[in-house]
Design a protein around this nucleic acid. Structure first.
Length: 614
RNA sequence: CGGGGCGUGGCGCAGUUGGUAGCGCGCAUCGUUUGGGACGAUGAGGUCGAAGGUUCAAGUCCUUUCGCCCCGACCA
């Protein structure tokens, strides 16, 4: 008995198909994997998610987990190739690093401890701690230990396009925020800050090129360095109401920043003689509003207290720090700025019990006289004389408190939230806020990772120095979602030719007419021979169905072969983004299609322009 | 993690005071159609998210649980 036993599964039987490979071509809709949907699945809210689902680009498997069907796969390949070209153009070398990492490298940089449940962890069969990659700074730094030895090898730029997993607490809006995603991340390796700055600026422009080539308008805004650390960071934002980030923008001078770090000009307090502090009764005044009303002073004459517990994740465990934050009454504390000033891994509001435990009185708290408490004050506080603060006595406040006369802050920093209508830090114009999706980010990391992992080189004098690193990311799936968000109409997607999975959607309305079918087949083969990417609708569907699907899928050029077009002298051509259509003689068709494609490609190329560094 | 919503054929949905599951689309076969999601006929397809309970009887009532969506917290 053979290995197949008694079953009759000869190779011929297994591999012979009843149709030729040509007929099974993935470019024919009759055998294309993925059904268009007349209605989007319930729960798809974002228009990009609805259209990508309906047009059979993507399917959801679980929360924040998507399959990319053939159409999306091709579109993503287009996007990723654009990214490759721009990365290669600034000296990038493509490679691939693993998705699964041993915990050691993450422990070496401390992120194993600093990052919470967002990092997926598991044990391998030998009970070793492993993680799913959220990003690859650690692995790059680890590679550099062996691959970079000398200053003569620097600078370098490496990148890969790889799966990441972040167990986000709330995935949303289809592909815009998912848990498993593909990201291009590049890592610059330099001798010094000057080299880093050069590569950073090269990315700054390359990223604009990438987004413009994908048809996604974007702006670069200053951003929080967050868990990445480092000294400078920009986020590239596609402005849209479905975006989850809030940006603070200035129409006048172009100032743009993520709300997390946005700065605004604080109104200067009028200079006054410092007056002696005075305890006054202020019953039932637990809010700044009530206090200001009772005393008849503007909120800007008060000092607001905010109590937080700052967490520091350290190797020995979590260290909690009680923080007394003080800000002028008319402003709000920005928790990101606060956390950054404290170098905290996380913040949470303190409970009343915790507030009392340090000797403060909730609602009437004062920083005066407290010991062993971190007191952080907004930089507006020392500049504002005679503020009303709590008295640490239920029902009483102190008039005329002054820093540093009455108490000594541990830290003075800008911890104020900028908001709509505040004055621009640069030009004084009124700021406004807008929503956006982060389509890319660039970070100056410095030596944080290289120093932690001992990724060093020898300089010309023989000294060992840590490599100066930068990291730069673009999520390709999120970018596709933004393309869909930006380029659609009421009938479906209207994709830019640079991103569309195919250039041409060929519709055959042959019915039972062999002549029409033959003509469509000829056109299909001619397009293939001319290297035009064509999706051929050879199905026996009604015209309405075929046109509706073509509109949904959103390829830039539609060709229709029908009895009507043949009678008019050839093949009808229509652009997805326009209503007019022309009939073209079959002998001229390829040239005309290629000419139209050139117009579309040129239109995109015209958007790729230098952007001044800000 | 807090607040809200939804789970019923592939997709969208209905299902009354509890009585043994239905509609549209899609799918299959046949016929008629063929320039904007056609028409007729016939047919297949669902342990109603899961578990437990109440009841003679549960899609429906109760409990638990899982999943998904939205808002917030969170987020390189």
């Amino acid at each position: 008995m053979g290995i197949f036993g008694t079953f009759d599964i000869s190779p011929c039987r297994v591999y012979t198909r009843t149709k030729s490979h040509e007929e099974f071509s993935s470019m024919k809709l009759s055998h294309h994997f993925g059904m268009t949907l007349r209605e989007a699945p319930a729960g798809a809210e974002a228009i990009s998610a609805q259209l990508l689902l309906r047009a059979a680009y993507i399917r959801q498997l679980g929360q924040g987990l998507f399959s990319y069907l053939p159409l999306a796969k091709r579109a993503l390949a287009k996007i990723e190739n654009i990214i490759r070209e721009e990365m290669n153009a600034i000296g990038g070398q493509e490679m691939t690093m693993p998705v699964v990492h041993p915990a050691e490298v993450w422990q070496a940089t401390g992120r194993w401890y600093a990052i919470g449940a967002e990092m997926a962890r598991f044990k391998d069969r030998k009970e070793r701690d492993m993680v799913l990659a959220m990003t690859h700074e650690e692995v790059v730094a680890d590679l550099c230990k062996t691959e970079i030895q000398s200053y003569k090898q620097l600078p370098q730029l490496v990148y890969h396009i790889q799966t990441k997993f972040r167990d986000d607490p709330r995935p949303r809006a289809g592909l815009i925020r998912v848990r498993e995603f593909t990201m291009k991340d590049s890592y610059s390796l330099d001798l010094d800050d000057a080299g880093l700055d050069q590569q950073y600026r090269a990315h700054y422009q390359a990223y604009f090129n990438i987004f413009n080539r994908c048809g996604v308008p974007s702006i670069a805004v200053g951003s929080d360095v967050g868990m990445m650390g480092g000294s400078l960071a920009h986020e590239y934002m596609y402005l849209t109401p479905v975006g989850e980030d809030t940006l603070v923008l200035c129409k006048q001078c172009g100032y743009a920043a993520n709300r997390q770090i946005a700065r605004s000009a604080k109104r200067a307090a009028a200079p006054e003689q410092l007056k002696p502090t005075e305890k006054v009764a202020t019953p039932n005044c637990k809010t700044i509003e009530e206090l200001a009303n009772l005393l008849g002073v503007p909120k800007s004459k008060t000092a607001k207290a905010v109590f937080m517990i700052a967490g520091h994740e350290e190797e020995k465990g979590t260290r909690e720090e009680f923080v007394f934050a003080v800000i002028r009454g008319e402003m709000e504390v920005n928790e990101t700025k606060l956390a950054n000033a404290l170098k905290a891994d996380w913040l949470r509001p303190a409970t009343d019990e915790e507030i009392r435990a340090v000797g403060a009185t909730p609602g009437y708290a004062s920083p005066i006289g407290l010991k062993n408490v971190t007191i952080i004050v907004d930089d507006s506080i020392p500049a504002s004389p005679n503020l009303v603060a709590g008295a640490n006595d239920e029902g009483y406040h102190l008039l005329n408190t002054n820093v540093p006369r009455d108490y000594t802050p541990t830290i003075v920093a800008d911890i104020a939230a900028a908001s709509d209508g505040d004055a621009c830090i640069n030009c004084g114009n009124a700021l406004y806020t807008a929503r956006g999706v982060e389509v890319g980010n660039i970070f100056k990391l410095g030596t944080r990772y290289s120093a932690a992992i001992s990724a060093t080189y020898r300089d010309a004098d023989g000294n060992e120095k840590p490599i100066v690193m930068g990291s730069y990311g673009i999520g390709s799936g999120r970018l596709l979602a933004c393309v869909a968000e930006e380029h659609h109409d009421e009938r479906g997607l209207v994709l830019p030719i640079t991103v569309a999975p195919y250039h041409v959607h060929l519709v055959s309305l042959a019915g039972n007419d062999a002549a029409i079918n033959d003509a469509a087949e000829r056109v299909y083969r001619a397009l293939l021979a001319a290297n035009v990417e064509v999706l051929y609708d050879d199905r026996a569907e009604s015209p309405g169905v075929k046109f509706a699907d073509a509109d949904l899928i959103g390829l830039p050029i539609r060709l229709t072969v029908s009895s009507r077009s043949l009678q008019a002298g050839g093949v009808e051509m229509k652009r997805r983004d326009r209503e007019d259509r022309v009939v073209i003689a079959e002998k001229d068709l390829i040239a005309r299609v290629q000419a139209e494609m050139k117009i579309l490609f040129d239109g995109i190329a015209a958007k790729v322009v230098p952007v001044p560094f800000k």
